[in-house]
C-alpha cells in the first residue's frame, strides 16, 4: 500500500497520507512532511557521528483532525527549534482527544541534509481523516 503522496496546491503544498490504522496514518503523514522539508545528501563519511535524541510527546485536541494537526505541528516545532528529524515514533496512545508518543530521530546537520522547503505551519484547511478501503487516509495542506 502507498504510504503517502505529495499533492498540488497553488500557493502551498499538500500531502495525502494512508495507513492501515490510525497510528500508521499519523506516522506516514509525518514522514511525508519531512520529505517536503528535507533531502538526504551524503557529503561526509558515514562513520561520522550523528546525534540521536528522544522526545516524549503528550498532546490533546477536540477531534482526530485536531490531534493530527497538533502532532505534526509539534514535530515541526521540534525540527525548527531543536533540529529533530523524526525517524521512529512509538505511539502509545492515539484517539480523538489525545496522542502520546515517544519520538526518536537524528539532529539536523547540513552535512547530511539539504533543506528543500521551509514549512511555516500545518493548516486545518479542508482537513478530514477518512475511512478508506484498506484503513484510513487524510489530506493535509501546509503553509510554505
Amino acid at each position: 500500500m502507498k504510504k503517502y503522496e505529495i499533492i498540488d496546491h497553488t500557493a502551498d503544498i499538500g500531502i495525502r497520507a494512508y495507513g492501515k490504522d490510525l497510528k500508521e496514518l499519523f506516522l506516514n503523514a509525518a514522514y511525508a512532511m519531512f520529505e517536503i522539508m528535507l533531502e538526504a545528501i551524503k557529503k561526509k563519511s558515514i562513520f561520522q557521528k550523528r546525534e540521536h535524541k528522544k522526545f516524549i510527546l503528550n498532546k490533546e485536541g477536540n477531534n482526530l483532525e485536531e490531534v493530527l494537526v497538533v502532532w505534526l505541528s509539534e514535530l515541526l516545532y521540534l525540527f525548527s527549534t531543536e533540529g529533530l528529524i523524526m525517524e521512529k515514533a512509538d505511539i502509545q496512545k492515539l484517539d480523538g482527544s489525545s496522542i502520546q508518543a515517544e519520538v526518536t530521530g537524528r539532529m539536523f546537520s547540513p552535512d547530511f541534509y539539504r533543506i528543500k522547503t521551509e514549512i511555516k505551519a500545518v493548516t486545518y484547511h479542508e482537513l478530514e481523516v477518512k475511512k478508506a478501503e484498506h484503513g484510513y487516509e487524510v489530506q493535509v495542506i501546509f503553509d510554505v
Partner: peptide, 27 residues
C-alpha cells in the same frame, strides 16, 4: 510570526463553539 498564528488558530477553534460562530472552514 508563524508560531503566533499557529497558537491562536488552535485556540480560536474553541471560540467557534463558545461564541456560536458558523464558518465553513476551521482555518
Amino acid at each position: 510570526g508563524y508560531q503566533v498564528c499557529d497558537d491562536y488558530t488552535k485556540s480560536m477553534i474553541r471560540c467557534l463553539a463558545k461564541y456560536q460562530i458558523n464558518v465553513p472552514d476551521r482555518q
